Amino acid sequence: MTAVFRFAPSPNGYLHLGHALSALLNQKLAQAAGGRMLLRIEDIDTARCTPALKAAMLEDLRWIGFAHEELPRRQSEHFGEYAAALARLQSMGLVYEAYLTRSEIRGFVAETEAQGKPWPQDPDGAPLYPGDAALLGAGEIERRRASGAPFALRLDMRKAVSLLKGPLCWQEEGAEGQGRTVTADPLAWGDVILARKDTPTSYHLSVTLDDALQGVTHVVRGQDLFLATSVHRLLQVLLGLPEPRYHHHRLILGADGRKLSKSEGHTALRELRAAGWTVEDVRRRIGI
């Protein structure tokens, strides 16, 4: 079977050195395996992922020498497919409307912790969703629903996990090709968001479905997404999707010791190029 790799950036800002590492590592591993190299544009956030940023992303990828098959998949063109997958999960009774706002959640958590009761957090540090019933009565929930209030569609994680027939794991390949089996823990994430009232998908749902629809066999991405694989493996089982192999690579860190981030304004590839960096400088800095 032909190995299929993908690089899947979100054009909501300019690419930086961390993106260069992920793109070129994917390309290197695909070439070594004699496999295919796909580009996917993860632009479900149609407000922030502008045409200008998409064009800049493609220009930066060409500059660093990232070669991929033409006609990249653009998520914004496939909302219907995500909606169909969501509908399947809804038909299984695994999805519910969640009306609590971020401020209401923060207030509930603060009040709970003020009473000396620590509130659990997901691996990214966000508080687990407490459930509408914890703050809202049945009447208020129905009032919000009838008024057309915004809501998120969340996965009932405990119910979903109860459907599993055995242990949930994934195969993680190391930097030198050695592999290990990792036990997934989707419950650590609580009731994750699968979509919103006005957007029929989320990162978790779209990335899982895209990998399956594109026949991706090897998911190579940053270590910051290692624990999120638990959610993706659960969705794969629930939707009857194939399981790829995973490799979560090291991150490029900034001077503050944190991973590079578009939202934090870390130096973009195009700024480095304007400052005189060459592609060889980029490769040397990221260790490719």
Rank of each mutant, 00 (worst) to 15 (best):
M1Q: 01
M1T: 04
F5H: 13
A8W: 12
P9C: 07
P11F: 10
P11L: 02
N12E: 07
G13M: 09
G13S: 12
Y14N: 12
Y14W: 13
A20C: 01
A20W: 06
S22N: 10
N26C: 15
Q27Y: 13
A33N: 04
G34P: 10
L38S: 09
L39T: 06
I41T: 14
D45K: 13
R48P: 14
C49R: 02
T50R: 09
P51W: 07
M57N: 03
E59F: 09
D60V: 06
L61K: 00
L61M: 01
L61H: 01
W63T: 12
G65S: 09
A67W: 01
A67E: 15
P72E: 07
R74E: 14
S76M: 06
E77I: 04
F79E: 01
G80Q: 10
E81D: 11
E81Y: 04
Y82Q: 12
A83E: 14
Q90V: 00
M92N: 00
M92E: 13
L94P: 03
V95Y: 00
Y96C: 06
E97H: 09
L100H: 15
R102V: 14
R106W: 11
R106T: 15
G107D: 11
G107M: 14
G107N: 13
V109N: 07
P118G: 08
P118E: 09
P118C: 08
W119F: 14
D124G: 09
P130Y: 08
P130V: 06
G131D: 05
A133Q: 13
L136D: 10
L136H: 07
A138N: 14
G139I: 08
E142D: 10
E142H: 05
E142M: 07
S147A: 15
F151D: 05
F151E: 03
F151H: 14
L155Q: 00
K159E: 08
S162W: 04
L163N: 02
L164E: 05
K165M: 01
K165D: 09
L168Y: 02
L168T: 00
L168D: 00
C169S: 15
W170I: 00
W170R: 02
E172F: 03
G179Q: 15
R180F: 10
T183M: 00
A184M: 03
L187E: 11
G190L: 15
A195R: 02
K197E: 06
K197C: 00
T199M: 13
P200C: 11
T201I: 08
S202F: 05
L209H: 07
D211Q: 11
A212R: 01
L213I: 01
Q214L: 14
T217R: 03
T217M: 02
V219H: 08
T229Y: 02
S230N: 06
L234K: 02
V237H: 08
L238G: 02
L239C: 05
G240H: 02
H247L: 10
I252M: 13
L253D: 02
K259F: 05
K259H: 08
L260H: 12
E264N: 07
E264T: 05
A268W: 07
R270S: 11
R270E: 08
L272I: 00
L272D: 03
R273N: 11
R273Y: 04
T278M: 09
E280D: 09
R283L: 11
I288G: 13
